[in-house]
Simulated assay, not measured.
Amino acid sequence: MSALTVTGLGKSFGGVDAVAGISFELRSGELLALIGPNGAGKSTTFNMINGQLKADAGSIRLDGVELVGRKPREIWRLGVSRTFQIAETFSSLTVVENVQMSLLSQQRRLFAMWHPAADERRDEALALLDRVGMKAQADRPCSVLAYGDVKRVELAIAMANAPKLLLMDEPTAGMAPGERNALMALTKQLVVERGMAVLFTEHSMDVVFAYADRMIVLARGRLIAEGRPLEIRDHPKVQEVYFGTGKTFEKTSS
Rank of each mutant, 00 (worst) to 15 (best):
G10A: 10
G10D: 01
K11V: 03
F13R: 10
G14R: 08
V19L: 08
V19F: 07
S23V: 06
E25H: 12
R27I: 01
S28C: 09
I35Y: 07
G36S: 12
K42M: 09
T44M: 08
G51C: 05
A55N: 05
R70G: 00
K71R: 15
P72L: 02
E74T: 13
S81E: 02
R82S: 01
R82M: 07
E88V: 10
T89R: 06
S92C: 10
S92Y: 13
S92A: 15
S92G: 12
L93Y: 06
V95E: 03
Q100R: 13
L103G: 00
L103I: 11
L104K: 13
R109W: 10
P116V: 06
A117N: 08
A118D: 11
D130M: 07
R131S: 05
Q137T: 09
A138N: 08
L145C: 05
L145T: 06
Y147T: 06
G148Q: 06
G148P: 04
V150L: 15
K151A: 08
K151F: 00
V153E: 02
E154A: 09
A162K: 15
A162Q: 15
K164C: 08
M175D: 01
P177L: 02
E179L: 04
L183S: 00
L183M: 07
M184G: 00
M184K: 05
A185P: 08
Q189F: 07
V191Q: 05
E193I: 02
F200K: 01
E202D: 10
D206N: 12
A210N: 13
D213S: 07
M215A: 00
L218I: 08
A219V: 10
R220L: 10
E226S: 09
D234A: 14
H235A: 08
F243C: 11
T245N: 04
G246K: 10
K247S: 15
K247G: 12
T252C: 07
S253E: 14
S254Y: 12
S254R: 14
